[in-house]
Design a protein around this nucleic acid. Structure first.
Lengths: 206, 206
DNA sequence: GTCTATAGGAGGATAGAC
DNA sequence: GTCTATCCTCCTATAGAC
């Protein structure tokens, strides 16, 4: 009884890990159930036994990925930390996370584009909306206080996000254009944690 | 004779335009030859008559897209324009281009990831390598002259590219998170041309 | 050059034994 | 729960008439 349950969870877990790898690398359309089965060390039939269909399995993976991509920023945004410190935390958090999940952003952005108006993504986001507004307000207050230069919160935050995430999305081109290999790329991204924060601060501080 | 040739080119052109739309929206794996045929107003067999296979047709589209995505920046980079002016030109050029080709970056980045080490992309890039080095040197010279703050050319250029391109890659999420529709999004991107340039200048100028 | 009809194969899904 | 064998649909590609 206990054995069966353990075995069950192990198999399910193996499938999920394999599916995650394959879907994140190849996308929904490019992924093959056979590849997932091979990587999990089982056969196709078992995939359907556990998850009924490719679409259902994909849904599980996508939702987990989407949640990871829009993570628990609520607390960070809404906290009473100084703005500049929030920015630093944000950049460090994202670059660290993407170093460990390099395929995540392209996967999520790509699959989102196809569905266009994903109800689950909206659900994921809902709870965070107020925190973002709070952060935007904080930016405007700092501007009023005169501690930072005027800039629409939209553009400031989009700049921060862009500089943190885009290099991972464009990884193949960055590697080609700057003639770097994987270890060098990783090192450069590590550097960016400080460089990007400094770049932002230099830009907005008076 | 002339009629036949015109007709021929028209059909080929119609196919290319249809294929471009479908491939850019759905990717290689997601695209259906039937959809391309429908959009071109012809039938599947003609697609193969003109382009022999799906892969060949895709290649034509991808190469055109890749060339557009890494456009004629050689002249800009290598010109004797002041650095700050080059940056301005670059940002304006990219945002303008992406306003008209919204699917381009995600398509190229996505398909590049799958092949990993695309020989054609390398070919496309080759000619531009020297111009990039020239631009990097220019950055270093400005730093030595003391006109801008120290920053590795890699990070400065990656920041510029990131802020220009990422919003288009992340369009669905940006729209969701900031609750904007398509016309508002377009307007915000128009704003960004000035905002991003200003943001960069504020950051690097002493 | 353009069409209809169909071959051929890949891949998701199910049946049924163990 | 897990496997093998098989079904069936979808889609690329080709044959052949016009």
């Amino acid at each position: 009884m206990v054995d069966e349950k353990d075995k069950d969870q192990n198999t399910e877990q193996k499938i999920l890990e394999a599916a995650k790898e394959v879907f994140l690398e190849r996308g929904l359309d490019g992924a093959r159930m056979q590849d997932i089965a091979d990587k999990a060390g089982i056969n196709k039939a078992l995939l359907h036994y556990y998850f009924r269909s490719k679409d259902r399995l994909f849904d599980v993976i996508f939702r987990e990925a989407a949640a990871r991509f829009l993570p628990k920023l609520g607390e960070l945004f809404a906290s009473d930390m100084p703005l500049l410190e929030k920015i630093e935390k944000f950049v460090h958090f994202y670059i660290d996370m993407l170093q460990q999940n390099p395929h995540l952003p392209l996967f999520v952005l790509n699959e989102m584009q196809k569905v266009d108006g994903d109800e689950f993504m909206e659900f994921i986001w809902q709870g965070k909306q107020p925190a973002l507004k709070a952060m935007a307000t904080q930016v405007e207050e700092e501007i009023k206080k005169g501690t930072i230069k005027p800039i629409k919160p939209f553009h400031l935050l989009l700049n921060i996000v862009s500089m943190s995430i885009f290099p991972f999305v464009a990884r193949p081109i960055v590697k080609l254009v700057w003639e770097v290999d994987d270890p060098q790329f990783k090192e450069l991204m590590e550097e960016r944690k400080k460089v990007v924060v400094q770049f932002i601060l230099d830009s907005i501080r008076k």
